[in-house]
């Protein structure tokens, strides 16, 4: 066997090509390196990296660039947590004192709410909404046809008993559902909130009861029983002042319709 021809040549050729190309790549990557903006890189590292697009930019990288340029506001991103926002704010010298919020569905009607008509055919909430304002007899009732479910980038919303329910352990608070819900039922509430009103209907009590068994009738009992006076009635719906609320839960207890719900947030290990 000819040692040099059978073994030496292939080894030399293969390693030769490999070394040649690795040197070439090393030279090229040095020679043609793009000066990356360090600030953009740092901001990008601090952002949530969910690439949800709720800020209106094509992904977190584009948003980071816009932030550094000063075109975008930090509050446009809802997926990034508070500490990182503070760091970004300190880095860019902008104020980041936004309160952290979570998203909830302010309707618990669903199958407890009467249907105006039976909808058959193609579409989701948006197309049903075009047909005389949705299939529910309540003007602000959750249609339950999954526009929010299909728009959610992290599959955090389910339709349970005909009404959208946000799974807080999956939700990244990006707010795409808030933009997409034709009834604007997806609402932002402060993260520190412990109770919220799960009804959006401003109708009088009688009209609410005709349509829906669980809607808020605007009786005002919650406002009366609240020991801290944190609830005021506005247009037949209670409005919470979360700075005053101590989370005693009396309002939810006494509510005749049981439409004041406790906000159950997942316990984070690092908190």
């Amino acid at each position: 066997m000819d040692f040099s021809k059978e073994i030496l040549y292939p080894v030399i050729i293969l390693t030769g090509i490999a070394i040649f190309f690795s040197i070439l790549i090393a030279i090229f990557s040095k020679r043609f390196a793009i000066k990356k903006d360090l600030q953009v890189e740092t901001v990008l590292g601090l952002l949530a990296g969910a690439n949800c697009g709720a800020c209106g930019y094509a992904g977190c990288e584009a948003f980071a660039k816009a932030l550094v340029k000063g075109e975008a506001k930090l509050s446009m991103c809802n997926a990034t947590n508070k500490e990182c926002k503070k760091k970004i704010g300190a880095l860019l010298g902008t104020d980041a004192s936004d309160e952290e919020t979570v998203v909830v569905c302010a309707c618990i009607g669903g199958i407890m709410c009467e249907d105006k008509y039976e909808y058959q055919g193609y579409g989701d909430c948006a197309s049903v909404e075009l047909l005389s304002g949705g299939r529910k007899s309540c003007p602000t009732g959750c249609i339950g046809m999954s526009t929010c479910v299909s728009s959610c980038p992290v599959h955090a919303i389910d339709i349970i008993k005909g009404v959208a329910v946000v799974n807080q352990s999956k939700c990244i608070h990006c707010g795409i559902c808030v933009l997409n819900c034709p009834k604007s039922l997806m609402k932002r509430i402060p993260k520190k909130a412990m109770y919220f009103i799960a009804c959006s209907c401003h109708e009088s009590g009688k009209n609410v009861r005709i349509n829906c068994k669980v809607g808020c009738i605007g009786c005002g009992i919650c406002a009366k029983v609240c020991p801290e006076g944190a609830i005021t009635m506005v247009d037949n719906l209670p409005v919470f002042d979360y700075d005053k609320c101590i989370g005693c839960g009396v309002c939810a207890d006494k509510c005749p319709s049981k439409c004041i719900k406790e906000l159950v947030l997942p316990q984070k290990n690092d908190e």
């Binding site: 190309f21 070439l24 790549i25 090229f28 990557s29 043609f32 390196a33 793009i34």
Partner: peptide, 10 residues
């Protein structure tokens, strides 16, 4: 790899 580096730059 090389093409990518060059295109990225130019």
């Amino acid at each position: 790899q090389l093409i990518e580096i060059v295109i990225k730059r130019f």
